[in-house]
Simulated assay, not measured.
Amino acid sequence: MGISSFNFITVKSNSELIRRMKMSDEKDKSIEHTYLAVGIGVGLPLGAALGLLLFDDIATGAGIGLVFGITIGTVADSFKRKE
């Protein structure tokens, strides 16, 4: 893998660079905030803490918290999209 393997990054002209930047900005505006990441981010540590307290096993609690986090995040996303 030398420098030649990164040829796909090159831009032929300034106008093409500007066009690509505008397309990137349009994509960023179209992406909605998802609650899935928030659900995972909250469910995983809370589940790990509860697993450590209840099961004396952090992995079991983290797995359970992950499942609940994904579920809650997905439900929140579906409600947000319906609005």
Rank of each mutant, 00 (worst) to 15 (best):
D28R: 14
I72D: 15
L44E: 11
K27L: 09
G63K: 05
V75H: 08
I64D: 14
L53R: 05
T74A: 06
K27R: 13
A59Q: 15
G69P: 05
S15M: 06
A76I: 00
K22A: 12
S30W: 02
I18L: 14
G2F: 12
A37H: 14
A62S: 03
R81G: 02
G39K: 03
M21P: 07
D56R: 05
R20V: 00
A76G: 04
R19Y: 11
S4C: 12
K29H: 09
G47M: 01
M23D: 10
D77P: 01
I31E: 11
M21N: 08
G41M: 05
D57Y: 11
R20W: 03
G43C: 08
G41C: 01
G69C: 04
G47E: 06
I18W: 15
D28E: 11
K27V: 01
T71I: 07
N7Y: 02
T60D: 08
E26V: 00
M1T: 04
E83R: 13
H33Q: 07
V75W: 04
F79E: 10
L46Y: 10
G39A: 11
F55N: 08
K22E: 14
I9A: 14
L66Y: 11
L54D: 13
R81L: 10
D77N: 05
T34Q: 07
F8A: 09
I31G: 03
G73D: 06
K22S: 14
T71R: 09
G65I: 00
R20D: 09
P45I: 07
A59G: 08
G43L: 04
I72V: 10
F8N: 12
L54F: 14
T60C: 05
G43S: 12
L44V: 08
I64N: 12
F8K: 12
V67L: 11
G61K: 02
F6P: 02
K29V: 04
L46K: 09
F6H: 11
E32M: 00
M1I: 05
D28T: 01
K27T: 06
A48P: 06
G43E: 08
S4V: 06
S78E: 12
K12H: 07
K22P: 09
V11M: 13
S24F: 12
A49S: 11
L17M: 07
S15P: 02
G51Y: 09
F8W: 08
K80I: 01
F79H: 09
I64H: 10
G47A: 07
A49E: 14
A62V: 00
V38P: 09
D56K: 02
E83W: 14
A48H: 01
F55M: 11
T60Q: 15
D25K: 10
I58K: 15
T60P: 04
P45A: 09
V42E: 10
S5E: 12
S4Y: 15
A76M: 06
K82P: 02
G47W: 01
I70L: 15
M21Q: 07
M1E: 15
M21D: 11
E32W: 03
L17A: 13
K27C: 02
M23P: 03
V75Y: 07
V67K: 05
G39E: 04
I31D: 10
I58Q: 13
F8H: 07
T10C: 15
K80H: 14
